[in-house]
C-alpha cells in the first residue's frame, strides 16, 4: 500500500442509488478499489473474501443492523469503520461511536466531507508515521516569526521566548486563526477552568503576549480583542 488511495473500500448500504452516488464520488476523489454490498449477508461474504481496508456502513439494513455487522467484522480484524446513517439521533451516534466506530456521519452529507473524513481515518490507521512526524507549526505575523517548537519569537527587535502560558494561548489562537476564540475556551486551554475569575489574569497574559508578537503592542494588529467574547489571531502566514 503506497498511499491511502490504494486502500480497498467496502460500502454497505441498501439503497442502490446511494451506493452509486458514493462510489462515483469516491472514484472521482481518487480511490480505486471500491466494493459494495446491499445487505448484511452479502457484506459478510465480501468482507471475508476481499479483506477491505475500511468499511462504510449504513445502520439500518434489510437483514440486520450496521452495529452488529461492525461487531462481527471487529471480531476478526481491526478494520476502521465509518457509519453513514439516516438516523441523526444522538443515541445512535453515541451508540455507534461507543461501539468503536471511527466516525459517524448522517445523511444527507456533503461528498467532500465524506472524502475528508475517510482520508483522516485512513491516514490515522495506515500512515500514522506521517502524522507523528508532524512538528509544531512555525508561522509569521508580518515580519515576526513565531516558532511553536522552540517557543521563540523572532523580530527586528530581537528574540523573545514564550512562557508556558503564552505558548498555550498562542497555540490555541493559532489553531483557530482568523476565528474568534472565547475567553472561556482560552482559559480552559491554559488553566483548565472557565473565564470567571481569570478575566484579569487572561488580560495580563494577552498583554505580555502582545509585547512579544505585536510591532506596536498598544494598538494590536494580529492579536485583536473581540469585545464581550474573546480574542482573534489574524494575518497569519504559515510557513
Amino acid at each position: 500500500m503506497i498511499d491511502i488511495y490504494d486502500c480497498k473500500l467496502l460500502l454497505v448500504d441498501d439503497e442502490p442509488e446511494l451506493r452509486r452516488m458514493v462510489i462515483t464520488i469516491l472514484k472521482q476523489s481518487g480511490f480505486k478499489k471500491i466494493i459494495s454490498a446491499g445487505n448484511c449477508s452479502e457484506a459478510r461474504s465480501l468482507f471475508d473474501l476481499e479483506k477491505p481496508d475500511v468499511v462504510i456502513l449504513d445502520v439500518s439494513l434489510p437483514d440486520g443492523d450496521g452495529f452488529s455487522l461492525m461487531r462481527d467484522f471487529r471480531a476478526s480484524s481491526s478494520v476502521p469503520v465509518l457509519f453513514l446513517s439516516a438516523r441523526d439521533e444522538d443515541e445512535d451516534r453515541l451508540l455507534g461511536l461507543g461501539l468503536g466506530a471511527d466516525d459517524y456521519m448522517t445523511k444527507p452529507f456533503l461528498p467532500r466531507e465524506l472524502v475528508l473524513r475517510l482520508h483522516a481515518i485512513l491516514n490515522r490507521t495506515y500512515f500514522p508515521a506521517v502524522l507523528s512526524q508532524k512538528s509544531k507549526p512555525v508561522f509569521f505575523l508580518g515580519d515576526i516569526k513565531v516558532d511553536l517548537n522552540s517557543c521563540e519569537v523572532t523580530s527586528q527587535k530581537g528574540n523573545a521566548t514564550l512562557t508556558a502560558k503564552e505558548f498555550s494561548l498562542l497555540e490555541k489562537l493559532f489553531e483557530n486563526r482568523e476565528k474568534i476564540v472565547t475567553g472561556d475556551s482560552l482559559c480552559m486551554a491554559v488553566w483548565g477552568d472557565s473565564l470567571y475569575g481569570y478575566e484579569n489574569t487572561l488580560m495580563v497574559h494577552i498583554r505580555r503576549l502582545r509585547e512579544k508578537i505585536e510591532p506596536i503592542p498598544s494598538s494590536p494588529q494580529y492579536l485583536t480583542t473581540v469585545r464581550g467574547l474573546g480574542y482573534k489571531l489574524t494575518g497569519v502566514t504559515v510557513l
Binding site: E17, L18, T24, I25, A86, P108, F109
Partner: peptide, 9 residues
C-alpha cells in the same frame, strides 16, 4: 435522508 443524500451528493 437517503434520497436527499443522493440528490445532495
Amino acid at each position: 435522508r437517503t434520497p436527499l443524500a443522493v440528490a445532495m451528493g
